[in-house]
């Protein structure tokens, strides 16, 4: 994260590819979490590591330009999403945070299970990414 000398070309090229792979894997972990190891926490941490890896290879300024995300905001949005799924079941007359699932036939893909636990997990995912990134970036920025 310290400004790295610009001639680290090998690192930058590799990291570009590696980061994409980590990103993709983190999304897989998030979506598959209900049935195999993974889930919001693990997916979130994985995504945060992918972003951190990018920061390692490039300087802060260019990454901030490429990913103009306010991570404090992500925490709030994630919390709202997780809370929202709970409130939806409450509106429908079930106890707070009751989750539903069903199986759907999709034309090409075949049978897919859709659950309301997924938006909840995505909420967790967002909070984790937001929290980890907010903490680390703030510490990094602090130079007084």
């Amino acid at each position: 994260m310290k400004p790295i000398r610009p001639n680290d070309m090998m690192l930058q090229v590799t990291i570009r590819i590696v980061a994409i792979i980590i990103f993709a894997f983190s999304f897989y972990l998030l979506l598959a979490g209900h049935n195999s190891p993974g889930g919001g926490f693990i997916g979130g941490l994985m995504t945060a590591s992918a972003i951190l890896v990018l920061y390692l290879a490039f300087d802060v300024k260019s990454i901030s330009k490429a990913l103009p995300i306010n991570f404090e905001m992500v925490i709030g949005l994630g919390l709202l999403l997780a809370l929202g799924t709970g409130i939806v079941s409450m509106i429908l007359g079930f106890p707070f945070l009751t989750q539903f699932f069903d199986y759907f036939q999709f034309p090409v893909y075949g049978e897919v299970e859709l659950t309301t636990a997924l938006p909840f997990d995505i909420g967790i995912y967002m909070v984790v990414v937001g929290a980890v990134m907010a903490i680390i970036l703030r510490i990094e920025e602090d130079d007084i």
Binding site: G33, H34, N35, S36, P37, G38, G39, G40, F41, Q99, F101, D102, Y103, E113, T115, A117, F120, D121, I124
Partner: peptide, 11 residues
């Protein structure tokens, strides 16, 4: 409707 019990407990 989940196979990963740990995750099911969590979410």
């Amino acid at each position: 409707g989940g196979y990963n019990i740990v995750n099911v407990i969590l979410v």
